[in-house]
Nucleic acid binder design. Structure first.
Lengths: 216, 216
DNA sequence: GTCAACGTTCTTGCATACAAGATTTATCAT
DNA sequence: ATGATAAATCTTGTATGCAAGAACGTTGAC
């Protein structure tokens, strides 16, 4: 028992939800999870309570825990908020970035370029994440960074779909270029607008995707 | 046992933290809370886990739970984010409000006027809250509204201090007037800017307060 | 054959038990 | 008297137990 069982369970189950191992609507049986992870029900319940507080699972009294299904509309709302927070992070970054922030952003951007031109959308996914995290860090607002990371994580499955869409990687990388320019030039409002759009587009793409899937 | 013990505990402890009954840094002893609420440790722990997930308490392994003390700087960061979210809510409200939204906003605004001109800052505090919630509702974004309510709640203790500051109630009400005008006129960007400023000012006032307190 | 009422079984909610790490206290040496 | 060390105590982390509610199946009536 090296660390903390509950925290480990929380992460495992959360990852399971994010990675769609536990699909939305799926029932999370306490004893099943307990035996699966080789622990008793108590830490499992405590982990589920945490996920409930975060909004990842719903606990219906006496009827067990299920993975929350946000539904397309709510996911779009989440992208909307994400866009705003990223915009704020960008504008703060433009005003506050340090030398280390700049190099971190440039390195991440260069990595994005590599995976983008290689057409490796999986690699791009990770490099893109590091790029955005570099901007959060450059905002020098710990609270904002935490909020952004949490939302980013929750939107991960829906964002991931998009990179498969035609040309999305190339377009995304092009947008990154303009964002880097604005931030490093200290143009806060421009950085805000560009980042907001960069994220908003993903919400719209997601809606498009839902619409096309629904019409079949 | 009418409802759900854990949920009740969560609310009670959360309220205790918000209302400063449990001060930042205070240790939350499991058996103490359990006996106080007449339950066993298990539901107490589950409630603490939830508060930990929300970020209200910190659980140090094997060393118990303590109320998190955000510290002045982080509180300022929280106001910064709050300003952005309220701005978004305002801009969406300006574009999406319905007739019922309009009346709700106008009623809340009228109530604010009454308590403001009566010089009753406690009453104003509650009316102000209803005013802002009316705007969240008018944004027609459930997710955004939830985020705003949660942050609003966490900032409650620090916001409350400010209404005691010279002229703050009157100034706040004046700002509300302009905000209502912008929203009902459908001027989304204007509403965003005004609301952002309206909230930002509170963060700045908070910093002023901290500065003056520190210099004594 | 279908539907409903009843009883069985399963699952959750909370309490209690027990082990292991942290903290405090007491004792002893310097 | 002070500091360190060891023992006692307290607290947390996890497992287990038990009661009550929900899901499920069975049996019986029509």
């Amino acid at each position: 028992m090296s660390e903390n069982v509950v925290q480990r369970l929380r992460d495992e189950i959360e990852n399971g939800i994010i990675s769609n191992d536990f699909a939305p609507g799926a029932r999370l049986d306490e004893v099943q999870l307990a035996t699966r992870f080789g622990v008793s029900r108590t830490p499992v319940r405590e982990a589920l309570m945490q996920l409930n507080a975060i909004g990842l699972v719903e606990i219906r009294p006496r009827r067990g825990a299920v993975v929350i299904d946000p539904g397309p509309h709510r996911i779009f709302e989440m992208f909307e908020v994400m866009a705003e927070l990223e915009g704020l992070a960008g504008s703060l970054a433009a005003r506050r970035f340090t030398d280390t922030d700049r190099t971190a952003i440039l390195v991440a951007h260069a990595d994005c370029e590599r995976s983008s031109s290689a057409g490796n959308s999986d690699a791009y996914y990770y490099d893109n994440e590091r790029f955005h995290k570099a901007i959060y860090a450059a905002s020098h607002s710990g609270f904002l960074a935490e909020q952004c990371v949490a939302l980013h994580r929750r939107l991960q499955p829906y964002r991931r779909l998009q990179l498969r869409v035609r040309n999305r990687v190339a377009t995304s990388f092009a947008e990154h270029g303009a964002i880097v320019e604005a931030i490093l030039a200290g143009e806060a409002e421009q950085a805000r607008t560009l980042l907001r759009q960069h994220v908003s587009i993903q919400g719209e793409r997601f809606s498009d995707l839902v619409a096309t899937l629904a019409s079949r």
